[in-house]
């Protein structure tokens, strides 16, 4: 029973990471109808910024916030400089552009920070841990929940958040009430970048930091987004926790760690085949 609880809770902790990445993907998807394949690499790069600062002697939480600010600005810049140019391009062309960005960021990170696997500090005191969860896992769940709460409050209660939701839903009507839709998109990219950075910085002490650290996490985040319903950010967050638990339990009880990625994905696909709009998504009926 104890092992089961341990696996379950530890799955929830990992799930927080997938939830954050899933949320970042959904935010960009809602505004642009594209999946940002470079989301994971953006996050990884921001984690390296945090690590560099920490190694230079900056206190952890200061480094954390600076890395988030960097991620935000980088996200805005990517939207303004690159993504903007492909507004009217075919879907597949945009996919290739995102893959191009993935290659660029990954390669730059390898060049600047080397491809060596490095340890990443955790800010949470060891005493926090219990027999079910390590200190970092507990802290990670806390940080994820705070992030989700902040993002929720921003979208729900601030005029800017409302304007961003409006711009994503109906750009033309938004312009007609004076919303600068282009900037709202850029802000969305910035925010998604920052959320992703939180995920990467929290994941790094567990998976260690290296340029390819986010590949698997991005895939799980993608799965979380689809599982929760790609139109529903909070569904994506819940989806993330479900994916985390499914992954851990599959690894512990079904096939061992060797195939756990495959098995978790098979489960997700089976769920999607039976519920194509995701668990919490609304089916979009398009007119013909």
């Amino acid at each position: 029973m104890d092992t089961f609880l341990h696996q379950l809770l530890s799955g929830l902790a990992n799930g927080g990471i997938y939830a954050s990445i899933g949320l970042a993907l959904v935010m960009i998807f809602q505004a642009t109808h594209h999946i940002n394949f470079a989301q994971g690499e953006q996050a990884m790069f921001s984690a390296y910024i945090a690590l560099t600062l920490i190694q230079a002697g900056v206190p952890y939480w200061a480094a954390f916030l600076i890395a988030l600010a960097f991620a935000f600005i980088a996200g805005v810049a990517i939207e303004r400089v690159v993504v903007r140019q492909f507004d009217n391009a075919p879907v597949l062309a945009v996919v290739v552009v995102f893959l191009g960005m993935l290659f660029i960021i990954n390669s730059l990170a390898g060049w600047l920070f080397t491809y060596n696997v490095q340890a990443f500090p955790s800010p949470f005191p060891v005493g926090l841990g219990s027999k079910f969860l390590s200190a970092h896992e507990i802290g990670m769940i806390g940080v994820t929940l705070v992030t989700l709460a902040v993002v929720y409050a921003f979208f729900r209660f601030t005029p800017l958040g409302l304007a961003m939701r409006a711009a994503a839903q109906n750009p033309e009507a938004s312009r007609l009430v004076g919303i600068r839709v282009g900037w709202m998109l850029a802000l969305g990219w910035g925010l998604a970048g920052a959320i992703g950075a939180v995920a990467a910085i929290m994941a790094a002490p567990i998976v260690y930091i290296e340029p390819n650290m986010m590949a698997g996490i991005l895939l799980y985040g993608f799965a979380a987004a689809l599982l929760g319903g790609i139109n529903n950010p909070w569904g994506a967050a819940v989806g993330g926790f479900i994916v985390g638990v499914a992954e851990n339990l599959a690894g512990a009880y079904v096939v061992g760690t060797e195939l756990k990625l495959s098995v978790a994905l098979v489960i997700i696909i089976v769920v999607l085949v039976t519920k194509p709009a995701g668990l919490f998504g609304r089916t979009v009926v398009t007119r013909v």
Partner: peptide, 22 residues
């Protein structure tokens, strides 16, 4: 040699910018 894949990525984006239909 240092940033081969970054250069490759730039090529991908540039190609798509100039020829969105390939």
């Amino acid at each position: 040699k240092a940033v081969t894949w970054a250069v490759y990525g730039l090529f991908m984006i540039t190609f798509m910018y100039l020829m969105p239909n390939g």
